[in-house]
Every structure is written in structure tokens, then in C-alpha cells.
Design a protein around this nucleic acid. Sequence first.
RNA 1: GCCACUUUAGCUCAGCUGGUAGAGCAACUGAUUUGUAAUCAGUAGGUCGUUGGUUCGAUUCCGACAAGUGGCUCCA
Length: 643
Amino acid sequence: MINITLPDGSVRQYESGVTSLDIAKSISEGLARKVLAASVDGQVWDATRPISKDASLKLLTWTDTDGKNTFWHSSAHLMAEAVESMFPGVKFWVGPPVENGFYYDMDLGDRKMSEEDLAALEKKMNELAKQNNAYLRKEMPKAEAVQYFTDKGDEYKLDLLQNLNDGEITFYTQGAFTDLCRGPHIPNTGFIKAIKLMSIAGAYWKGDEKNKMLTRVYGVTFPSQKELDEYLALLEEAKKRDHRKLGKELGIYTMDDDVGPGLPLWLPNGTVIIEELEKLAKETELAAGYKRVVTPHIAKESMYLTSGHLPYYADSMFPAMEMDGEKYYLKAMNCPHHHKIFDAEPKSYKDLPFRLAEYGTCYRYEQSGELFGLMRVRCLHMNDAHIYCTKEQFYEEFRAVNEMYLKYFKIFGIEKYVMRLSLHSPDKLGKKYVDEPELWKETEALVRDVLVRTNTPFIEVQDEAAFYGPKIDVQIWSIIGREFTLATNQVDFAQGRSFKLHFTNQENKPEIPLIIHRAPLGTHERFIGFLLEHYAGKFPVWLAPVQVKVLPISDKFLDYAKSVSDKLKKADIRSEVDDRNEKIGKKIRDTELMKVPYMLVVGEKEMNEGKVAVRMQGKGDAGVQVVEDFIATISQEISERKS
RNA sequence: GCCACUUUAGCUCAGCUGGUAGAGCAACUGAUUUGUAAUCAGUAGGUCGUUGGUUCGAUUCCGACAAGUGGCUCCA
């Protein structure tokens, strides 16, 4: 007999060789029907795998992440079985679970899979699932496994085997499909009740663009049709919040083929938001001791050779244009220009920290396949600044920048974010990174120190630093789950030297300043794209392109409506009158759809009493108010930047 | 840049197997003067992304290019 400890601490005795599924059955049949896998002494196992010694056990179901991942992993195998039946001879690479479902990478040889095939594959998968085929585990010695795949001519699985040793090689078979796989798997295919194959994509083998491109099929499965339907409905909802859709509907920005890919045109409504953000940034930066500057959009080749941009990042810059025998480049970053401003006049330690801020326009030649709405563009407006400071001042300056992030996050109600300490990769020194191993170590320690001392939670990621130094990237998620880097706070030990920047220290000696590059609000493009999704287009009043729409009941009250609107405008409130010859219901509907935060309905009563009937977007009628009172309330809301 | 798919009126989308296109909304005109999410009627609007080819004939079939979408790679 062996002792099995359950999560509640209770211990039960079973015969050695008992499976998790048996144990589940001994607890309740209902539970047994839901068990997908089990955590045995912390390791995820097949529910059907015999347990032969004392162990702690947690039964995993759909509601456990590991249970769900097992379910999707098994679904990937089911899909592979269907693919193999339709594309005999197909070779598989790996098929893991992902955040919302699973994929499998495969080499179809000369054949191509089209989206029409997906429907047929789904049908086949449903048939196979109904066969309730068990996922059977089999251990195999390495030599035998190598022989098996050599005979099959499967170079992909042979590649996987290279990193495996005897004792860790297992195969799983369900129905007609056998795969090298460490498992675990759900008990049988019958658990998979609802199947949707989402898309076909290309994916480089091992994620390396020099390798062959495999075919990747993404899918998602559920234990019931209802859950699949809910998931698909959720995706539909998410589409409505897509910044590209909202950006068009709300008149925020547009793209035009003649202007070029990745070059957004900001429409009047979007420009209002830009100006409000810049106002916020200017206020914040002024209070934090920054000085504002303005610099040209281009510079000569020589500056980018100095800065290191050309050797390290030429691929991301637009090609040079020639003028008067000189090469000029569009700037991809503002830093070199700022360095020149630092250098324009001699600096002493008394001038430091020296902080230069600019909402700089940059141009980056992003790969065509990378462009994505406002999130990845070729012309961007960066909330940029550079802080030149001494090593002694570094901690305080870097800390203050991080604090500024948090202040902004509060204003915008950004609660979910991760600070990523992005480090260099030593084997790429001189290629991707400036070749100064000691300085890398030193500055990475400086940045880590700030995070540790300020108790800021962070994760460390290798090989994501800037070419000139380590950085902290702030990863955020829009409400629809899209993840990206918003803010960045970087140390730069390299450009100070390459630009021969210096200040005179207290000993009257020249010293090279450390440089902090920071962009808490990222770029207008990415940030407004994020805000559109974050707020679902319902901007807080201070950011709303139109803050108040005055809606006269009929033409008779148009003059009064205009007088109300004029009063609002005098109080710096963005107000418009709906002067169309439409019924009030129509005016309200259209204004609601444009997500204008306040509507003021005015008719006979309001006109006679000098009042307005307030209606709040999404909330409906909010009662009648004297115009001046309304102005006072909304002005307060705007000045506080309430969200 | 790579793989797959998409591109029809300002917007959202129909258009079966080739015979030069249609709806709703928006726009314009008129009627209506309206009380909290769509008043009615009429008018106008498209070389069917661009460009080659096949064909008596191409929005429809094939190719190239461009832009977009989903991924991969990349992302200072």
C-alpha cells in the first residue's frame, strides 16, 4: 500500500500502481469525468500513469492552468493525427499549448495548406475525438527512437532527440498517430468536445529566419461547445475595441496608400489627444527640472557614425539622401541631437543633472511585415528626454524617472505592467552591443540596484538591451490582451564617450557624464493606440476630442444651444452643437456612438430657465443643471484629469 | 523580409460555376420642428487595389506588384 496526500492534507491509502484516475473515481465519479491530468509530487503526469510510491497528489481539471495546457497539448496531437491523415508523409516539429489554445509546426513538403483545409481538418478532428482514443505512453531507449525516426526520415524529431537521454524518451500514441513527446496527456480524445482551428501561419524552424519556414496551424479546443462559443464571442468583443477600428470610427487617425505604409495621418480628433498628452508631459517634465528643446528631423551621416547608430542599427533607418555631396539620414532617435545640445556649451558639475526633453519625431524603417496599426509605425513621436548626470546622481535620477512612470500609470489607470530589466548578451558584443564588457557589467548593476532598493518588482531578460546600455522596458497589456512595450528607461555609457561629452568636475578635471534615455509615455502612436483599446474609445473627459455636445431638441433652440456652447468654449471646454435637422433620439445615438462624454439636451424648458439637461455617455440622463454649475463641475473634472 | 489570406460606393458588406455591379448606413435635396440610442421620401455616388495575361468577353480565372489582416523573424 502507498500513501497519497491530497491538497487538503488528508492522506489516503491505495495499492501501489494505482492511477490518479482511479483515485479520482474513489472520490467521486463526477470528479473522475473531469480529470485531465494530475500533479504528482509537483510534476504533471498522465492521469492514467501508475503511481508506485507515496506521493502528494493534485488532480488537474480544466480550471487548472496545467490541466488546460495538457488538454491543449493533447489537442495538438489530435490535430496532428488529422493532418497526417490528410497530408500523409507530413513531418512534425513541436506542438505546444499557448495562451489561448495550441499550435503545431509541420513540414508539408511541396504541399500547401489553405484555409479551406482547416474546415476539413476540424471535421476530421471531431470524428477522431469521438473515437475516445486513449493517449498511450511508452518509454523507449534512445537508440531505438533514433532508429525509428531515421527509418521514417524525420530530421525534425531526430533533432529533438539529440538533446534527450535514455530514460527521458517517451512516445505517445492515440489512434493512428504516434509522436515523440514528453507528455503528459489527457486520458482520451473524448474529452475534446469543441474544436476551432484559427489560422495558418508560417514559422521559422527554431524561430530562426535563416531556417526553413514551417507551416504552423493555430487552434483552440474546449471541453464543451458552450465554452468555445463564449470564447469566440469574447474575440468578437475584443475586435470592437481594436484601436484600428476605433481609430477610424472616432476620427483619430487614418492611413493613405499615397503617404505610405506605417505613416499615420493624425486627424483633428487624434490631434486633440496628442496635444493633451503633450500638455501633461510638459507640465510633468517642467516640474521635474527638464528643459525643452526642438531638433531637426535629419542629420548628416557623420553624426550617426559617431553615435553608433549606423554601425549597429543601419537596418532600421531609412536609407540616406544625398545633398551637396553629403549623406543625410532621417533620425531614428533624438539622442544624438540632444548630445549636440549638451555639447553646445561647456558644462560643469554644477549644471548636472542636465535634462533635455523633446516630443521628437523619429523615422524607423520597420520591416513591412511588422507594421501594425498605430502600434508599429515608421513615423513616431517620442516622449523623449535625456538626462546627463554623474555616477553619484544616477540612482536618484533613474529612480525619479521610474517614479514618473508610476505617476503616469495612475493617471491612466494602468494597473497591469511588468518592468523588464533588459540586459545584453555577452556573445553579441561588438555586433549588437557596444564592445565594453566592463561598462556593461557596471551599468547593469547600477540599474538593478535602483530596482532592488526601491522594491520595484521586475524580471530580467537577456539580450534585449539597447546597443549603448541596459534598460528597463515597461511591458503593458491593453484590455484586449495585446502586450507591448510602452515606456523605456535606459542607461547609456557609450554615447557620452563616442560624442566626447564631458563636464568639469569639482577637481577641475573633465569627466564623461552618464546618460539616461527615457520615454515614459513611449510614443504618441503606440500610447494612443493603447489608450483607444484601454478605454474602448471612451476617453476620460480631459482627453476626449469633443468633451461636450449640445443637442437642441429642434431648430427653435439652436440659438440657445449655440450660446451654451459658446459659454463652454470660453471656459476652455471642447464643445460642439449638433445643428442637424434630426430628432433628438438620432442626435443622442450618434453622439453616444462617437463616445462624447457629456451631452447637453436643450429645449423649451432649459432655454427658459438658463439650464441644460445633462446626459452622460453610456450612463444616460443625469438631471437638469444651471449652465454655470455644469461648467464648474466639468472644469474640475478636466483639471484633475479624472479618469 | 518570410508563410497564409484579404482588397467591390465615404463606411460595413452582398455579388453561384466568366456576359462591364447591389444593399444598409453616411452624403446631398425636400418634407417634418421633433424631449433622451436610428422620422419619411427622393437624388447622386464605383474603369470592382494597380498592372500584365488567358478569353469573343474578366469584378469573377492565372501571374506580378502594392496595401491590409493573422502569424514568424525583427523591434534603439
